[in-house]
């Protein structure tokens, strides 16, 4: 299936909202770190329900926010969740960004980057559209060190790229982005049952679940354009 087909289905059965709720546990910390100044133009790659752009308008007074998604149904839902006219949604592809060179101040992307057809090309595109000093905040739960995420590919028809932290840093640098930081952001909100409840449907042991959420959490890599 294509990104369009796969994620149109997700949007239609309400998974856009489900992801927003779960991803917010860590995404809010990523957003808080971004050096967005009042009036800045921000792009959210693979915006899903579009929560990130709405949050950056509210918390940092971003000037204009674009949410780009490859699924028309996702973009359509996102449009429906806000009537802020400074928030724009558009349908597009990560490897073919419809923005002029140097036109974006900061890019955010949560749990979306690894679906890119060619993630190296996506990074080059991000670098192209960022102004000098603009940042890319790239957050993923699916990555090599997070062994608990490896099986996710089995239930998703879009091919996923599984890099390690080190591969992220290298790919950023290959694309001409300086790496400013890399971090694991724990999810402290997903409830973890008493050890007596294990094995559960999803988790063999409590230790595994603790590792997945409290330790590995979300891998954040921050790049800076020049």
């Amino acid at each position: 299936m294509s990104v369009r087909e796969e994620f149109n289905e997700w949007a239609e059965d309400g998974r856009d909202k489900g992801m927003e709720e779960r991803h917010w546990h860590t995404a809010k910390y990523v957003l808080a770190r971004m050096p967005v100044e009042a009036g800045d133009t921000v792009l959210d790659l693979g915006c899903g329900s579009g929560y990130a752009g709405r949050a950056l308008r509210d918390t940092k007074n971003a000037g204009r926010v674009y949410g780009l998604d490859g699924s028309p149904e996702m973009a359509h839902n996102a449009r429906g969740y806000t009537d802020d006219s400074a928030v724009s949604y558009l349908v597009g592809d990560f490897d073919h960004l419809p923005f002029e060179d140097g036109s974006i101040d900061h890019v955010f992307t949560m749990e979306a980057f690894y679906y890119a057809n060619d993630p190296h090309e996506t990074l080059r595109e991000v670098r192209r559209i960022l102004r000098p000093g603009g940042t890319l905040f790239c957050a993923v739960n699916y990555y090599e060190e997070n062994i608990h995420s490896h099986e996710w590919q089995d239930s998703i028809s879009v091919e996923m790229t599984r890099w390690s932290g080190n591969e992220y840093r290298e790919a950023f640098r290959d694309a001409g982005l300086y790496v400013a930081e890399q971090d694991n952001i724990p999810d402290r909100e997903t409830e973890i049952p008493d050890s007596a409840a294990f094995p559960t449907d999803s988790w063999d042991t409590q230790d595994a679940m603790v590792e997945r959420y409290r330790e590995f959490g979300t891998l954040l890599t921050v790049g800076v354009s020049t």
Binding site: S2, R4, P72, L90, V91, G92, H96
Partner: peptide, 16 residues
């Protein structure tokens, strides 16, 4: 542009 949302996918991905 449909329902206020521009579709800027490359044309060969629009129906893929």
């Amino acid at each position: 542009i449909e329902d206020g949302i521009p579709n800027l996918l490359p044309p060969d991905m629009r129906e893929a």
